[in-house]
Amino acid sequence: MHPRRLAPLFAALAFASSTALADVTKDASCQTAAGCYTIAGTITNEDAAAVARIAASLKDQGVVGPKFLLNSGGGSLFAGIEIGKSLRQMRALAMVTLNSQCASACVFILAGASRRATYGAVGIHRPYTEQVGNIDIAQAQVEYRDTQAKARAYLQDMNLSDDLYEAMVRIPSEQIQVLTPEELARFGLDKNDPVEQEFLDAGGAELYGLSKSEYLRRKGIASTECGKYLTKEETAQQYLDCRDAILSNTSTYPAKSPPTGGEDLALKIALQVAYDLYPFLDHTKPGANRAAIDEVVQVRDSLMARGYSPAQAIQAAVEQIGPKYAE
């Protein structure tokens, strides 16, 4: 278990300059049909309006699934909530890359995404009111309760456990707790929204003509059973073919998954998939890109130091670095 990391807010938001307004920008080179965007800096109402316009445009086009890279130390809580709602409407992917951060109000944006990938620092603290100036204690109480109620209700609406909110309120507003990989997993901030996953699984069950329970059972078997088809001479295609065979074949499969090679097998699969997607990452082949390989190794080592397994670290590093060097 990793030690909890607390930092004064002024230091953690070196975590992000409080004077830098957030900027919502589009990546013109993105290959995702719905587009790729970055939200960086201090989150404002103007950013919420900009993201709402993106959501409205995609809705008119009938397109979903944009990608948003997050790199913000926070800002307006309520602007963050509105941006999160827009991301949910778009069924967006929110990603915090290794050298990026998402803290304070930014976490509410991350919470809103239907799909999430978190490799950088994610930090939480108690949500605070935006009231400034002299107010009496009764008014302060009203403002505080209203802010907390809205924050908690929003996280519930995003299908996240109350555990996340309870963890937030334990951290003073002037401090940041950077979440460990275990905490990210426990709070659900490193995985798909459960409703999004239900949607995907329902479509998968329909595609293969299975009941939901049978589809999920076979999906679980396929995630481990098919690893044995990945050998040094084979490619990830055998894994995919095996998975498809298990999901589509009418034969009866065992109710329990067979034993596997554990982490060694998971690492082998991760490496083989990486080589299949990005052949230049295979150092044994002509055309290997040493710069790309070195960068993947650097990211992998950093993630492993944070508690990721070797397979998880390879997968995350390749996802982050591979597209950068792809032609």
Rank of each mutant, 00 (worst) to 15 (best):
Q156W: 05
D157K: 12
T180D: 05
L281M: 01
A105Q: 01
S257T: 15
R53D: 14
G80E: 01
A326C: 06
D193A: 01
S114G: 15
T32N: 13
A140S: 06
N159S: 14
L207W: 13
K26G: 10
A105G: 02
G112F: 06
E182I: 06
F68L: 09
I176A: 11
S104K: 05
S72P: 02
I39Y: 00
A121Y: 00
A33C: 03
Y128M: 15
H2L: 15
T231R: 12
L303Q: 08
A34Y: 04
L93Y: 01
I293F: 08
G35K: 02
I137V: 02
E234M: 12
K59L: 09
G209C: 07
G188N: 04
G209Q: 11
P279N: 02
C226H: 07
A140K: 10
L98Y: 13
D193W: 04
P259Y: 03
A274V: 07
V107G: 00
R152Y: 10
P310L: 05
L179T: 04
D294H: 01
P8M: 12
L77F: 15
V96I: 01
G262V: 12
S213I: 10
Q177Y: 08
R152I: 04
V178L: 08
A222M: 04
D276A: 10
G287R: 05
E234K: 14
T129N: 10
G84D: 02
V296C: 10
V24I: 11
T44P: 03
G227N: 15
A140M: 11
A94M: 00
I81A: 06
V318D: 10
F10W: 13
L240Y: 15
N99I: 00
G80W: 01
D301C: 02
E46A: 13
G262H: 11
I269D: 12
S251G: 14
G209V: 10
G65V: 06
T42F: 10
R290F: 12
R217Q: 09
V64N: 09
F280N: 06
E263S: 12
T235I: 07
V142Y: 09
H2T: 12
I135N: 00
I269Y: 15
V318Q: 10
Y308H: 14
G73I: 05
T224Q: 11
T97M: 03
T147Y: 09
S100F: 00
M90F: 07
I246S: 06
P66H: 05
Y215H: 09
I269H: 12
G203K: 11
A7P: 00
